[in-house]
């Protein structure tokens, strides 16, 4: 039984928490050193928060907890967070 979904499911919340669009962001795992898109992380949502785990080693990278409509983000398993620059708006 697999209880995880892909990182896409938390991009909205995670982006809001950090105040920047993380749609094309990537993480470097502090546990194993691998780099991957946030969308590729394994996300556990059936728990008291949102837990993002490394798709390579399974280690916890990010924990997000919503407390009174505020998002508390713990980046304990992240060596580096890389945020792509905002894209040119397609309409201008």
């Amino acid at each position: 039984m697999s209880h995880y979904v892909d990182g896409n499911a938390v991009l909205g919340a995670f982006s809001l928490a950090l105040g920047t669009d993380l749609s094309e962001g990537s993480l470097e795992c502090a546990g194993c050193g691998s780099s991957h898109a946030i969308a590729q992380t394994r996300v556990y949502l059936r728990c008291p928060g949102m837990v993002l785990r490394c798709p390579e080693c399974g280690g916890v990278e990010v924990v997000i907890v919503e407390i009174d409509h505020r998002l508390n983000v713990t980046l304990s398993g992240v060596l580096a967070l890389r945020i792509a620059p905002p894209r040119a708006s397609p309409t201008t």
């Binding site: 039984m1 995880y4 059936r46 728990c47 008291p48 928060g49 785990r53 399974g58 916890v60």
Partner: peptide
């Protein structure tokens, strides 16, 4: 009995 887990079973 909901199953809650922060990681693999």
């Amino acid at each position: 009995f909901p199953v809650l887990t922060a990681g693999p079973t």
